[in-house]
Design a protein around this nucleic acid. Sequence first.
DNA 1: ATTGCGTGTAAACATCCTGTGATCAGGAGG
DNA 2: CCTCCTGATCACAGGATGTTTACACGCAAT
Lengths: 285, 285
Amino acid sequence: MLSTIPLITVSAMSRERTEAQPGGQAAPQRAQPRLRVAVIDRDPGFMQVLSNRLGALACEHRTLSSPATVETLVAMRLNALVLDLAVIGPESWEYLERVCGRLPGLAVIVCTGPSSVAQRVRGLRLGADAWMTKPCHPEELICVIEASVRRHRRQELPQVDVAATIGEITIRPDLYQAYVGEQSLELTAREFEILQLLAQSDRVLRREEIYERVWGYAMAHGDRSVDVFVRKLRQKLRAISPHWSYIHTHFGVGYRFAPEPEDLELEAAGPVEEAAPEQPAALTR
Amino acid sequence: MLSTIPLITVSAMSRERTEAQPGGQAAPQRAQPRLRVAVIDRDPGFMQVLSNRLGALACEHRTLSSPATVETLVAMRLNALVLDLAVIGPESWEYLERVCGRLPGLAVIVCTGPSSVAQRVRGLRLGADAWMTKPCHPEELICVIEASVRRHRRQELPQVDVAATIGEITIRPDLYQAYVGEQSLELTAREFEILQLLAQSDRVLRREEIYERVWGYAMAHGDRSVDVFVRKLRQKLRAISPHWSYIHTHFGVGYRFAPEPEDLELEAAGPVEEAAPEQPAALTR
DNA sequence: ATTGCGTGTAAACATCCTGTGATCAGGAGG
DNA sequence: CCTCCTGATCACAGGATGTTTACACGCAAT
């Protein structure tokens, strides 16, 4: 499974690091993930020029001359979207709001003809990251795209490709699977992604956070998918590593991953509130 | 470390107000700290207008008419910086690069006079998040600042989420929990949020303020929820840290958080108690 | 001292959250 | 074309949490 997943997967999008990579650990190939950009416009010349420049940057791009549905955009797994509101028509504001609301991780650059301050303010308030006025220099637009994506990317996880063992569990990102010893947990792709995300963060993650990072777009209100997957994960974890508990529920908040030997009737002397070992010297830089 | 770096006095800058929740939709976002913005410019009128608007947004801001050192900017703990390159002078590019390099989490908006495409491209490539050309409408600039910060915020969260110890209490935002030593207070999500809010502010908070920032909407007249939660908090605090009082009532106003060693008045009954008249608060045990 | 209002406290009540199992739709592979 | 598998969605029950109500107490003003 997953061997047939097309080229673009969730992991492909979230793999990147601007910071200096700690020398050792020659991770496989840390190929700069190619940017995925879509342009919704109708000016053939503009799109041609843009297309050339984007291509030169080794950046996957797609041009559309009519608005795509939000679901389509979700499926494209984009990093950035360049949008001419004139193409959308009268519902452009609503469209912009929908897109930005559903894809909080997407850089949205409105690039359209002359506009009023009020229009630009409205666009930015609805969630656009930048507003370029046509005609504009393609190079500048590219820079704005890059600047926007640069910001968005930073929020994504380091995504280490190195195997890590936590508790009894060994996580192998290269195999998209987790093990206890030699025995596989038989996790599905999505289960693995959630486990990996949880294991990488050593803090409570809210459902919305988990959903957004794994699914790639905003969680609908009342969606229980995360709960269900956590249940499946716990089930498989418990089956293979019965004496440990890994995923902890924080009521009203979310989930947190921390391997703990689930001992029988401990509670003897040290209730071992898993308390912070290290107290990060507060506030620096 | 950094104890010698001059910090912006919170009391001077912070004007706690209802936080205008940008982003339109009623996303159940947790209470987030106020924006901190600095403006480096020399146009008195522009700065005045900007200052007013920023103030109206309950946004801490400071205006400078000369370039601050990178260290100073670091110490200010800014979310955003608005910069007129003309103020910096000939080393403006170098300055911009230094600032952006040193503060990757800072939203940098260049707002300066007429420029060439090449200049704008250069600025953006060096790390600026946006480029506004003066003269510009203050409202638009504000929106650009908000749009930039909106994205930076997330990455910044883990940075803000550092543990803090006040009195005997250690607050761990990453675990959504508070501790005394290793022992958990067993706070519920909402209790923790209220405690965190109170602990962050060094002043009296009105009930309406607390309610709005924790619940996310206006408090109904006569609602006693805040009182009830304060009671629960006090109960748990007293249970674990009996000799301290943390939440103080200001009659007719609201509540204030400040750890104070309980002055045991046992002198009357039995002078035996080690009524250590000790540390003037704030210092850890 | 008395009065009125704001606050502390406790319990009952209503609500929301979560775990769980089951069902359904779509896709991959045979 | 069929079957198996994965992922999405639903319904339900139990329990934890949040809200409301009621009453006693203390502070402040008359």
